[in-house]
Structure formats: structure tokens, C-alpha cells
Computed example of a mutant assay.
Amino acid sequence: MPEIVDRVAAMVDYTLDTIVGPKSKNLKVKDPKKYAFEPKTLLSEFIDIYLNLGVSERFIEAVARDGRSYKPENFNNASRILSRFSIRSNEDLAAFEALKERFKIAKEIDDQDEGDLGEIPDEFEDPILATLMEDPVILPISQQTVDRNLKERIIKWKAEKREQAKNARATATAEKMDVTEG
């Protein structure tokens, strides 16, 4: 469901950060067998989630857009662990490497897009996630009403900002190429 893609991506990114990130050394229990605590198996299962959901371009974009927990070094650490302990097949490792590259490209595109848009007007920013809203709705608890026409205004604003950035880049490129004397 498109409504939850960003949240799922944030959840798996956060969990991957917990499993292989800087704080992973804190993941210890006194009796791992008693609690069925197997970090390598857990990592393998989360790689399954990435590989299965990685067929969706929207998921790829959502992972890369996750400003809180998306960290390329976590994916590199996961690859290193998977390879070092032969947790996954060579085919799975290759698929994961290709997926990591797709995340990297999506992040570069998202960063460029964010730079093109500049500062987001307060009325377009999600008050909870501090991100640009894509489909504003009524909040269930507060019953705060957000005009559905705001969506069209956001789309228009994004298109205008992207066009301005595109024109600015084209102008800058043309100025660099201008070698006329005078």
C-alpha cells in the first residue's frame, strides 16, 4: 500500500542500523538460546525484506529518502557480515549489491531534487516527519482538516521549483560553454 511505504522503509532502515550500525555492539543478551536471539539470522531476514520489497521503485525511493536511518555504511556493514559468515548465497549477495547501488542512485536523485526545491513552505511540510507532504489528509485524532486542494498546490510548487532549477542549471552550463571573445 503506497500509504505505508515510507514507514516500512524507515522501520527496516532503523532496524538495520540497530543490527549492523555503531550501536550493534549493545545487542547482547546473557542467554541468547533462551531468547532465541540470533543476530545473523535476524540480519538475513531483514535482507530478505529489502530484496523482496526492492522490486518496487517506490520502496527504493523511500529507503533512500529516509533521512533518519538510511546510511550507506549500514548496507556495506551488512554485506561484509553476510559475506564473512557465508550467511547468504553468492546470488543473494549480488542481488543485494545491485540493490545497494539502486539505493545510492535514488539518494543522489533525491538530494538533487531536494536542492532544487529549496526551502519547503511551512504549510507544505508534514508537522510530524518534517518532510514535504505528498497527499495531505485529515489527521484522525486532532481532526485537523487539510484542504485536499493543497495537494495540487504542492505538485504545482514542486514543478515550478524544479523548472527554475533546471533553467538555472541550463543557464550556468551555457555560460560555462560561452567562449566568444568580447
Rank of each mutant, 00 (worst) to 15 (best):
D48R: 14
K34T: 09
G67W: 02
K71P: 00
E45S: 08
L53D: 04
E38K: 08
P32G: 09
T41K: 12
R58E: 05
N52V: 12
K34D: 12
K34F: 11
I60W: 03
N26D: 02
T41A: 07
S24D: 10
F37Y: 13
L51D: 00
V55T: 02
A36K: 15
P32Q: 06
K40N: 09
I49F: 09
L51Y: 05
L42T: 11
E45Y: 06
Y50H: 14
L43S: 00
K25Y: 09
E45V: 07
R58M: 01
E57I: 13
N26K: 06
K33F: 14
I60D: 00
Y35Q: 11
D66R: 04
Y35A: 10
K34P: 05
G54E: 08
L53S: 08
I60K: 04
R65N: 13
R68V: 15
E45L: 11
A36R: 15
I49K: 10
F37D: 08
K71C: 10
K30N: 07
E38H: 04
I49C: 11
I60T: 00
G67Q: 11
K25D: 09
T41V: 08
L43Y: 00
P39R: 04
P39E: 00
V63C: 06
K30M: 04
E45K: 06
E57S: 14
L51C: 01
N26R: 02
L53E: 11
S44K: 03
F46T: 03
P32S: 07
R68N: 15
I49H: 05
D66C: 05
K30A: 06
D48M: 12
A62L: 05
P32F: 07
E61S: 15
L42I: 13
P32I: 07
F37L: 10
V63H: 07
V29K: 01
E61G: 11
E38V: 02
F46R: 05
T41M: 07
K30W: 10
N52S: 14
F37C: 07
D31C: 06
